[in-house]
Amino acid sequence: MKMMECPLNGPRNISEFTYGGQVQVMPDPQQCSDLEWAKYVFYEDNDLGVVREWWQHTPSSYWFIAERHNGSDVILRTYDPATLFTGRVDFQDEGSPS
């Protein structure tokens, strides 16, 4: 069984984790076209290379981000989401996240 390094709990069997999909940037839900929105909701890039994914360590409910090569399945690094999401996100009435 594969192992993954949880930034909080250390290396664990992959069965302790829940996959949460690729990290994606949400387009502005009020400004983007229907097509852009549909792509965000339904499409996943399937390019060979390093992908950035959400993973949760199930027993501790801790979400983190893993960078994984989808060809070799090697997990290159894992880190706390605060590394990517550095500040508070707000939605204005005109709909643009700030």
């Binding site: 959400w54 949760q56 409910s61 979400w63 605060a82 999401f85 508070r88 996100v89």
Partner: peptide
């Protein structure tokens, strides 16, 4: 629901 809530707030940081 709980999992999704945690993930959303990992991004929104409320």
């Amino acid at each position: 629901v709980y999992r999704d809530m945690l993930r959303w707030n990992a991004q929104w940081r409320l």
